[in-house]
Design a protein around this nucleic acid. Structure first.
Length: 298
DNA sequence: ACCCAGGGTGACG
DNA sequence: CGTCACCATGGG
């Protein structure tokens, strides 16, 4: 990759491969990004807000100096990932090829683990739009006021919400998942080490995450894929399960069988394939889903 | 009023 | 080990 350039508080990062910001930020892997004009998005990650825009030959990040780029956004945006090669490999799969062509430029993020974990604790039996609303209200209620926006709440802040505060988290719209959030916050504040997850290997990290109340296989896979860099993780939700049933008749029907099939077929690219399928299934015009024609209606 | 949503838990075989 | 009711909430 060519060297990033910095001027006037903006970073310009040249890319040798197309990046699709719409797909990347609207595909349900992160919940605090909002469109801000054509080919541009504004969002908050952890305690940092930035505007990211697609420009000729790359992207710009504002505000962002060199230290900030090296220390945060480079990793967050997975800018060292070889997406050109990965997409070329997926294009060799006759089923994934048309989807990858449609969703080319989708990138998997490396989010702060804590934020990703809490966000996906809220995801069970829920939908992307509502998860986004809950996350934003959690930040407003419990996050640090950064002047114009709110940081994602710390584990200590959500613990202070505390016992009676389960009701406070529930009041943000979390419903029965409020207990998951507070118990996990207590575990993390009490020493549960999220930082070691990217170092211990996929299986060990998954087992570790599933010790937390409210974390099953699917939520664990989302955290491992979207914040720990385990690109072989293959989260199976109702959309992916439906898409696999449509496109892979021999993949089986249970989540376990589907994960196994995906690992065999896609290997280390399973996670990227999964996210492309998820986004493709949710955004195409006439999904053969249970109801209706507008997949993103809720 | 009914179904759905990036599911997990606990009870019961 | 697998299955299943239940969970709180808002939009279609």
């Amino acid at each position: 990759m060519a060297m990033a350039e910095f001027s006037q508080g903006t970073a310009f990062i040249p890319l040798d491969c197309r990046i699709d910001l719409d797909a990347t930020f609207a595909c349900g892997q992160a919940f605090r990004w909002r469109p801000d004009g054509p080919d541009a998005w504004v969002g908050v990650a952890g305690r940092h807000r930035a505007r990211i825009a697609a420009v000729d030959g790359g992207i710009t990040v504002t505000p962002c100096d060199e230290a900030f780029y090296e220390g945060f956004w480079r990793h967050y945006l997975d800018l060292d990932g070889d997406y050109a090669a990965w997409e070329q490999e997926l294009a060799c799969d006759d089923v994934l090829a048309p989807m990858a062509a449609c969703c080319g430029g989708l990138r998997l993020l490396n989010q702060p683990i804590w934020e990703c974990l809490i966000s996906f604790l809220l995801s069970s039996n829920n939908n992307v739009k509502r998860i986004s609303g809950i996350v934003e209200r959690l930040c407003t209620a419990y996050g640090e006021d950064m002047g114009g926006y709110f940081a994602f709440p710390t584990a200590d802040a959500l613990c202070a919400a505390g016992e009676a505060g389960v009701a406070g988290v529930a009041a943000c719209g979390a419903g029965y998942r409020a207990a998951y959030v507070v118990r996990t916050a207590q575990a993390v504040a009490g020493g549960f080490d999220l930082g070691s997850l990217p170092l211990m290997g996929y299986e060990a990290a998954k087992n570790e995450l599933m010790q937390l109340h409210g974390v099953g296989e699917k939520v664990a896979d989302c955290v491992l894929l979207f914040s720990c860099g385990y690109r072989e993780a293959f989260p199976v939700d109702v959309w992916v399960q439906r898409a696999m049933g449509i496109h892979f008749s021999d993949a089986g029907t249970t989540a376990k069988a589907i994960r196994s099939f995906a690992h065999g077929r896609f290997g280390k690219l399973a996670g990227l394939a999964q996210q492309i399928m998820f986004h493709f299934e949710r955004t195409r015009k006439n999904p053969p889903g249970p109801s209706g024609t507008s997949a993103l209606s809720n």
